[in-house]
Simulated scan of single mutants.
Amino acid sequence: MTSTDLQRILTHAGKTDDHVIGFRLANGGRVMFTHDRFDMKTNMLDGIGMLYKKLEDSEGQIAHSYTDLGEVIQVILRDDVSQHIFVRDIIE
């Protein structure tokens, strides 16, 4: 999935990248944006074909995740960015 593909989905849904809360991967894994908001310019790295996410553990240690965009098979969008969403309740 490229940023163009994601933009088509967002346009169809009438949403912006703020509404993205996660992606399902072909291997069954997920990349979720629950603490930090998803930003297409920061997180969809078409130039290197990767989905990027900055990670922080409970002690404040930082790590960086790069996932092949070809692995993304599903986008999960929230309906209302002003409301908290319980991600575990809506993930299939």
Rank of each mutant, 00 (worst) to 15 (best):
Y52G: 13
V31G: 08
E71L: 11
R78M: 08
L10G: 01
S58M: 07
A63T: 14
I85A: 06
V72M: 13
D17F: 03
L69Y: 04
M1T: 01
N43A: 04
R24F: 02
V87D: 03
D18W: 02
E92C: 02
R30A: 07
R24P: 02
L51R: 06
L55E: 11
S65W: 04
Y52W: 14
R24D: 10
F86A: 13
M44R: 06
Q7T: 10
R24I: 02
L6R: 00
M44D: 04
F33R: 00
I90V: 11
G29Y: 10
T16H: 05
Q61P: 00
T34W: 09
K15G: 00
M32F: 09
I48G: 02
L69K: 07
F86C: 10
N27Q: 10
D18A: 15
M1A: 12
G28N: 15
S82L: 08
A63R: 10
A63S: 15
G14W: 00
L25M: 10
D80C: 08
H64V: 11
G29C: 08
E92V: 02
R30M: 09
G14N: 01
L6N: 00
E92K: 13
T11F: 01
E92H: 12
L45I: 05
F23P: 03
G29L: 10
G22L: 08
E56K: 15
R30P: 00
S82G: 13
D18M: 08
G29K: 13
R8H: 04
I48P: 04
G47T: 13
T34R: 12
H12Y: 07
L45Y: 07
T2P: 01
Q83E: 14
I91Y: 07
D46E: 05
V72F: 09
G49V: 07
S82C: 07
D68W: 07
Y52I: 06
Q61W: 01
T11P: 00
Q7A: 04
D80I: 02
Y66D: 15
D36W: 10
F33L: 01
H19E: 06
V87L: 03
M40H: 09
F86T: 12
T67D: 04
G47A: 14
S58P: 04
D68H: 12
D18P: 00
E71S: 07
T67V: 14
E92I: 00
E59D: 03
V81C: 15
M44C: 12
T67H: 06
K54L: 14
M1Q: 05
F23Y: 08
Q61G: 00
Q83R: 12
H35K: 15
M50H: 05
V72P: 04
T42N: 15
T2Q: 06
G22M: 06
H12K: 13
A13W: 07
Y52K: 15
R78H: 03
D68S: 11
H64K: 15
R37L: 10
I91K: 02
H35S: 14
T34Y: 11
D17N: 05
D39G: 09
L25R: 04
E59N: 07
I9G: 01
V72G: 09
